[in-house]
Design a protein around this nucleic acid. Sequence first.
DNA 1: TAGATTGTTAATCGATTAACAATC
DNA 2: TAGATTGTTAATCGATTAACAATC
Lengths: 212, 212
Amino acid sequence: MTTTRLPDKTVERLSQYRHLLMAYSNFGKQHIFSHELAGMLHITPVQVRRDIMLIGHTGTLRRGYDVRDLLKRISKIIDVDIGMKVVVVGVGLMGGAIINYFSGKRSKLTIVGAFDIDPEKVNRVYAGVPCYPADKLREIVRAEDIDIAILTVPPADAEAMTEKLVMAGIKGILNFTTIPLNVPEHVYLEEYNMISSLEKVAYFVKKQKINK
Amino acid sequence: MTTTRLPDKTVERLSQYRHLLMAYSNFGKQHIFSHELAGMLHITPVQVRRDIMLIGHTGTLRRGYDVRDLLKRISKIIDVDIGMKVVVVGVGLMGGAIINYFSGKRSKLTIVGAFDIDPEKVNRVYAGVPCYPADKLREIVRAEDIDIAILTVPPADAEAMTEKLVMAGIKGILNFTTIPLNVPEHVYLEEYNMISSLEKVAYFVKKQKINK
DNA sequence: TAGATTGTTAATCGATTAACAATC
DNA sequence: TAGATTGTTAATCGATTAACAATC
């Protein structure tokens, strides 16, 4: 089954639908309407229906979508069959918080290790995740078949570390540093710049204030 | 000077241009071409020129843009004249990391306080930022004229806390919880869902692997 | 039946990019 | 001049939404 490549935004929303559906299912609900899902995410019902259409799932006119079936379908699409291993690179406050945040949350995406250059941190265990020395990166990534890295090193180290990650065979990077990274085409890169996000909020708050 | 509302994406990029320009300026460079800025951010030169056009700035054919002038112009657009106060709500690991991350970084956006319900945390100081009890939120937000909140409470508390923030008069929220929030129209909301981000990376890494 | 819902196409909206005149 | 660059319009691309037939 080779689904055509789903739009970026749809993939993000599928992950969010799943998150909500799991809560909903634990609540004992068996069916859900597109407008219910939409309401929770503040998007339109049409968008929900269209996303669900894109993954080839259908509901019923009477009761909407079967929660369990939809959950299964979404998981089939966005989950990895065997599971995928993730490492956190840079165990500062942010790296530590991220390890803690994900620890034990998702079953198919597991943080299996962390890396740091600080000898103080190396060989310690953070929320069940062992910290290795950065110079063993290549070795461990290859041996453990790790696919994804979350990058939380200081800005000055970001470029050099990215190069090492790519050389080691990492396939995807989630970048939390403020440095825009350079990666070859076969590596999927997702950047999150917290400063831009906050400045964007500030900009629109300011606009709002002026218009009033 | 009422600039027409800039596109969301342009505002984000302006913040990124500024970040790069500051580094570039410290490097002693006085001028920069659109393709140089573009290269650093992996976008097209046209996009850079268009964004710069939208804020009404111009460069020269010979030397591109004057770094200092452009910096000033961008700051004029996205910065707040008087400065804007920010609080972090929820001083867990993530909240603490964010306080630390921003501390001393931006001059116009300052984290002036944090809130938590845990008596252990209240009245302590994190990276220079005092932590107040959550029930003083309204009082302090009003007294200090705080505009923006970064929300890092546990998922279960997200909704209730958001309501309190809105009631207290917060104008913008940067939401780091996995709960999609409900806010009135006059409050600007920016959500960041780390789990969706990571699952998106996993999805495209998986796709890549299959196609090969 | 009347009302509510899904599934899907076509239209719209917003953002990016191609094309190119102007000019140093 | 030839080459490189900016500024800007028009075209394109991608994502969202409006519209509506089908149907329980």
